[in-house]
Design a protein around this nucleic acid. Sequence first.
DNA 1: AATCGCCCTCAAACCGCTTTGGATGGCTCA
DNA 2: TGAGCCATCCAAAGCGGTTTGAGGGCGATT
Lengths: 342, 342
Amino acid sequence: MNLKELASRLGLSPTTVSRALNGYPEVNEATRERVMAAAKRHNYHPNTRAIRLATGRAMAIGHVIPVATRHEIVNPVFADFIAGAGETYSRNDYDMVLSVVPDEQEEAAYRGMKSKGNVDGVIVHAPKMNDARIGLLHDIGLPFVVHGRATGTTLPYSWLDVNNRRAFQRATEFLLDLGHTRIALVNGLEFMDFAIRRRTGYIDALSTRGIAPEPALMSSDEMTEIAGHRTARRMLALSTPPTAFLVASMISGMGVRRALEEQGLQMGRDISVIIHDDDLSYMKNGDDVPIFTATRSSVRDAGRLAAEMLLDMIASPGPGPQQRLLEAELIMGQSTGPCLKP
Amino acid sequence: MNLKELASRLGLSPTTVSRALNGYPEVNEATRERVMAAAKRHNYHPNTRAIRLATGRAMAIGHVIPVATRHEIVNPVFADFIAGAGETYSRNDYDMVLSVVPDEQEEAAYRGMKSKGNVDGVIVHAPKMNDARIGLLHDIGLPFVVHGRATGTTLPYSWLDVNNRRAFQRATEFLLDLGHTRIALVNGLEFMDFAIRRRTGYIDALSTRGIAPEPALMSSDEMTEIAGHRTARRMLALSTPPTAFLVASMISGMGVRRALEEQGLQMGRDISVIIHDDDLSYMKNGDDVPIFTATRSSVRDAGRLAAEMLLDMIASPGPGPQQRLLEAELIMGQSTGPCLKP
DNA sequence: AATCGCCCTCAAACCGCTTTGGATGGCTCA
DNA sequence: TGAGCCATCCAAAGCGGTTTGAGGGCGATT
């Protein structure tokens, strides 16, 4: 069942039927209802391929996922971000197209999307310092929103980010207020922009209280259970080990906890831990009472909002770049307590 | 730069240029090279939207992700499956379109994909018993491959699955061989087909050795850290607690481990644990030495293979449904040891 | 009664590609 | 020499919608 056939059954022209269905004003209200009814009765859905060609719009948003042989950075939070963004797309009749490419082909993937015209815009994930993708997308003229920010980029661009610096600053202050001074930072990889900002927040808080950051207490690694465990284990073996840990993710945090338990240390009593909680649906930080004290910000909400921002930009390309900074909340769990050591 | 313009620059007709680029035989080899060179020089990429309309093929595969308000089942393994499938699609110039919909709209989503024609086929995730989606897709005539199987379905259909029954049977036998008789099963939700099969394997192994399965040692819940912890904690409180745990996933396993450590039990020495390891890239079971003894099967490979199967079916729709059963390997970690209790 | 204007509808062009069904010309072969 | 045959290329008709520009019908105005 296509437009032409539906039109002929109704004794109308395709033009009128098309207009009736798309809510154009120049069609009689009675006619419109007749058309609508017939469309429903015959289960007519316009062919997406034809609409796309005719309108020149892809009605789809692209997400490029570079799959590295070495690091696997996006994965854990990625699923939830996608779920959030996907909800927005569905509500707006957009498709979400994922492109999984080897990371050295990432640039080609963006160029391809532009020239093949299968998306109207893209979301950029996991920005690094001086991220080359921003300049690239700017040049080829593909609308985009960055999830995060890219320090060092001078071009204006649209982004949605969590205030990572502030979150880690507050968390550090909270630990300082509990009397901790030897606070370890178990950070993500520091070529990732968010990791740099978190580190800055941590250092700022320490400096304000006149505490010099200690390199032995600062680490940067992948945010996996294994790496978290390895790092915490190493730091606990120091001659004067930390009394508190500030950890980049729920998953790293589980590794840290394992290392603590191996040493017979109980979180919240013997040692304090604060993690960053992306509020992942499959990795909840406790049921009612949070396990970890945490800086929390839902990455799923971020997905929803970033997608809305992008669709908005596509719908009305007028105004310049949009930006939005979300604040993480500091939630109290059972993993923090006053410092016992003098 | 489009086909017509490229053709006119070359002094050829669009027909010839199209044929030259698509490798048809009725064009002079010299002409073809000239066309190819010009295409590259002008950075010509055919417009996807036009190709799709003209050929009637979407060159895209759909994945419907139902987002439930209650359970969040697919998420953890989903990201890796998608990454695997995505690699296959990229290699074959297919797009992957994800559709995130409230689970009560799942049927509508499949129907929409068919009638809107934006995909050539779909992958069905997380089949349940008597899964209604199989009949539905069969009826509307959209090619599909199921990741897993659906017990109770009589229609023939294509699937790719891990031999879950056998994996859990072997794991149970392994524990029995170590002298364990009180083996706990920490299963996934048992309306999921794979969970039923795992349970069957577990029970079969016990029965063969003349051991009656004990309801108090069998649980079924979401595969989260929280749920794993809760279940293990409950079972450890039994008057005669289990000496071994068979756990449905890496994440549940981490919850189980937490419960064990709370009781001061050390895995591999005081108590044995076997998990199922989907070989998730962000949740590795140890670096070189596996932490957990595990039944392992890469869900990423499964994604790759399922996608290949589907593309193959679309390319040559002749033969009937394809099926493929992968075997999980039993890998030795540090979490199992001989039973100490009499 | 003629004119104007408004409401509604339609024919046809267009989006950019594929594909069918010729057309052209040179070459072989009887 | 002329028929037949390839090899090569092209014009035009789709694919299934949207959109432009024009026109018919009819009540209101003069």
